[in-house]
Design a protein around this nucleic acid. Structure first.
Lengths: 187, 187
DNA sequence: GACTTACAATAACGGCGTTATAGCACAGTC
DNA sequence: GACTGTGCTATAACGCCGTTATTGTAAGTC
């Protein structure tokens, strides 16, 4: 039983039926195996969620890293903002998992935290490029990246809360807020 | 058995032991009653969560409404931003409940949605005052309030995610982001 | 006094995370 | 070839969960 297969199937169940549908028994029966296998592979359900965590962050990291580094810094920043939202909307359940909304009590392990850090690092590099190009003021790039992430997360998170406000203005709210956050650091 | 007593106790359990500790059986035994009472009172666990939802939003609404309306609009806006964060930090579990992080799958009922709307309305009024005072441009006050809320939520939500980044800069991130969001609508 | 209501106690249903037990198949090693 | 470990299987159990049904009791209302 390949680890990647298990994680893929878990992701499918999560996307199709939500967090409550993702149980160890259900995952095992979908895979055609027993729960024992899952417990030897991940240790616990928390271990499984942790692994999905990692995958969710790694996916975002890959998207941001796919932006050509030779593009103008402002364009890289814009594209990373779009990538963040598109990634979240394309697999909302996984997104809510990575940001604690789908698995409260979780307390991610060291691996998951490291994956989250790596995802932030990708944005930090772009922020540094913007500072180098004179777009941003010379401030702590990590702090800037955190504020930008908070802006993106706030808009996307409320957009995904599926009962809040009209959908039609969601994109406008997102671009307005992320642009406002970036503007705050421009010289 | 008073409804308010039940909700208070549920809130205490939630705050003390987190979402996983809040079970119907546990709540009943803490109250010294049987689960039957809870089910006749709330219909289901979802009904109970819905009621807590309402309470969480009503609390925020009350805090914002407590800001004196004769204060300068800019000051009212600043105070409402502080109130939002303080309310979230004072009862983080309830905050995460109201914003879907502690009870995924929930799909709040009409009452809960109405309470959320009322909470937004309180901010809309302040935004309107800011427009009237010439601080904000003449745009849809509801849209402005939504973007401001998204900014506040994004910063607080990541602050509460308890594994993300350093705590020490949390306040600075919050004020920076909310100020940036407000700045975007100033003339 | 009859009737409704709110509660109590008890028990059950199926599902959950998790663990234990026991057995089977195949790899590598001596 | 025998031995050992490893990965899997099947089965079952523990205690918890949300939820419901049954039965009974006490208080308040008409």
């Amino acid at each position: 039983m390949l680890r990647a297969t298990v994680l893929d199937t878990a992701g499918e169940i999560l996307a199709r039926e939500g967090p409550a549908g993702l149980t160890m028994r259900r995952l095992a029966s979908t895979l055609g195996c027993t729960t024992t296998v899952l417990y030897t592979m991940f240790g616990s359900k928390q271990g499984l969620i942790d692994a999905m965590y990692r995958e969710g962050f790694d996916r975002l990291t890959a998207l941001v890293r796919a932006i050509p580094t030779d593009a103008p810094p402002a364009e890289r920043l814009r594209l990373s903002g779009l990538a963040y939202r598109e990634n979240a909307l394309s697999s909302p359940q996984l997104y809510q998992l990575t940001f604690g909304a789908a698995a409260p009590e979780h307390t991610p392990g060291a691996d998951a935290v490291a994956a989250a850090e790596r995802s932030l690092d990708a944005l930090v590099e772009i922020v540094e490029a913007c500072i180098g190009a004179g777009i941003f003021r010379r401030e702590d790039p990590r702090f800037i990246a955190q504020v930008l992430t908070a802006a993106a997360h706030g808009a996307v998170s409320l957009e995904l809360s599926h009962y809040f406000w009209s959908k039609t203005e969601a994109e406008q709210r997102y671009t307005t807020l992320t642009a406002a956050a970036a503007q705050a650091f421009m010289r």
